Every structure is written in C-alpha cells, then in structure tokens.
Computed example of a mutant assay.
Amino acid sequence: MLNLRQIEIFKAIMEAGSITRASALMNVSQPAVTKSLQLLEIDLGLKLFTRTPKGLVPSYEARAFYTEVERSFTGLASLNRFAQDLRSMRHERLVVNVIPALSHRWMPEIVAGFLQKYPEASLSFHASSSPHTAQLVGQRHVDLGIAQSRIEDPSIERTLLMHLPVVCVIPENNPLAREEVITPQLLRNQDFIGLSRQDIVTQQLEAHFAAAGVELRMRVEAALALSVKALVNRGLGVGLIDAESAAVPSAEGTVIRPFRPLVQMPIYLLRLRDHATSLLEQCFVQHVIDHGYPAGKDS
C-alpha cells in the first residue's frame, strides 16, 4: 500500500535533485528521507535511483512514475482550490424573491451587507407578490422567498422574520398632518386610499375601524403600498401602509405618522422543507435573521 508521505518525499527528491536538498525542502532529517525512499522502492518493487559521484540519477521508471505523481498532485491542487471556492461560495448563486415593499430599501441593504461580508458570493433577487413568491419557492424556481404569506403548503417551511408596522401617509396640506399619532377616529370622513381587501393588513385595519365605529370612505383601492403612497402624494386622500414602503424616498408632498392601535404586517422567510441547503443559503439566512427590520420603527 503506497503511503502519501513517501510519495511527497519522492516528489521532493525528484524536484530537488538530491536527498540533502529534499530533506531541507520537506523539513525532514536526511535519514528519514533515505528510509522513506527505500520503503517506497520496496512497495513499488522498482529501483528508482542510482547513486553516482555526481549524485542521485533517477531511473526510467522513476521518471515515468514522477510524471504520474505530478499529474495526481495537480489534480489534488485543483481539488483544494475547488474546496476553497466552495468555502468562499465563489461557485454558487442564490436566487431570492421578495415582496415589492422590501425591494426598494431593505433588501438592497441586506444584499450589500452580505456581499461585503462574503465578497465571493453571488446573489440575484426579484420582487413579486406574496402568493407568487410562495409559488416560486414551491416550484423550486427560487431558493428563498421573503413575503407576507398565509400559505399552508406543507412543502414550504415558514420562519417569521419580522413585523412591519403600519403607518399613516397624509398629504402635507391635510390638517391631519399636524397630529402626532393617527387613530381610527381621526380618519372619520377622510377620503381613504387603501390596499386590496384580501390583504392581511387591510383585514386587520377593517376590524379596528369596525370596533371604533368608524366607516372608511374608500376612494381608491390599489394593489401596492407604493401606489397608495403615490396617490396620497397627489392629494387624493390618506392611506395606511407598511413603514418600509412609506419610507421609500419620493417627491415632496406627504408626511408619515404612527398609527394606533398598532397594526403590523408579518414577514416570513419561505424555503422548501427538508431540502439540502448550500453554505451560501445557510449564511444568507442567518444574515437576514440577524439584520431584520428595526423593532418599533414606525415613522
């Protein structure tokens, strides 16, 4: 059975040209190098070197064996480089889908921070609705999803990442802009721009308004929080949207105020259950968990 250490010493002798130089190169005593060479010759059943007044002369068999050894070590070096690439995540690309509310500020900040920490990693992120995000995860079109989701698909694992508080977006010339906190009572008789009635946040808000005896005067219903904000900016009414969408820079014309009672949008990390995860995915998930939305940020 060939011994890797013997092969390494043989390679060193061939490249150094002598036992003395091979000993120094390997940081091994000369007797140990000589003994290793003798054992290798016994194991191979070959005479590898002939001693001459000018030093060791490799045999034909030694030169042929060295060619194969060098090829093998080149392969090992390649494997080592590939393993290093895996550790640095150089050969991986992670595909993440997020809801639009998180795609303008939060997600770019998450990605920038992650790539600063892992500069060899490669990421791709896209934005779509929560149901579509869950569908993409379930169909393996993306590695991870970050969404507001009530999906009950047993193949998808959900991890609660954070809660986005709901805030009130108000035209700056509206008297409500002078209020520090907005309540359902203050929104009585206000033109209201809301999200779809199927939205989780909308359903929570309707319950609070019903409890306060306030009927919303819905003027426009929009699919996206950013659309609500744009319509408020044009003076068409007030809106209640998540704090992240409200904080996206836009043209002057609106103010943001906290809304009470507190209503929050739950955000989940979605991934396939019981599937093998790459090192890149594990590190990114931990990074997202460690850098969730700041608690209490609602204005």
Rank of each mutant, 00 (worst) to 15 (best):
L4S: 11
I7W: 07
A16T: 06
G17P: 01
L25D: 10
N27P: 03
A32H: 03
L39C: 11
L40A: 08
L44K: 02
A64F: 15
T67E: 08
R71N: 08
L76I: 09
N80I: 10
M89S: 02
M89G: 01
H91I: 15
E92A: 00
R93M: 15
V98K: 07
I99W: 01
I99S: 05
P100H: 07
M107N: 13
E109F: 02
G113D: 08
E120S: 14
A121W: 01
L123F: 09
L123C: 09
L123S: 12
F125K: 09
S129Y: 01
T133G: 01
Q135R: 13
V137K: 03
G138H: 09
R140F: 11
R140I: 10
V142M: 00
Q148A: 15
Q148R: 15
E152V: 15
L160I: 12
M162P: 01
H163Q: 12
P165W: 10
V167N: 00
C168D: 04
P171R: 03
R178I: 09
V181S: 06
T183D: 04
P184I: 06
L187E: 00
R188N: 02
I193R: 05
G194Q: 04
E206R: 13
A211M: 12
A212V: 11
V214M: 07
L216H: 13
L216G: 11
M218F: 14
A230M: 08
L231F: 13
N233E: 07
N233F: 00
G239P: 02
A251Y: 09
T254K: 03
F259Q: 05
I267L: 08
Y268S: 03
H275I: 08
H275S: 14
T277C: 04
L280V: 05
Q286E: 15
I289P: 12
D290H: 14
K297F: 14
K297G: 09
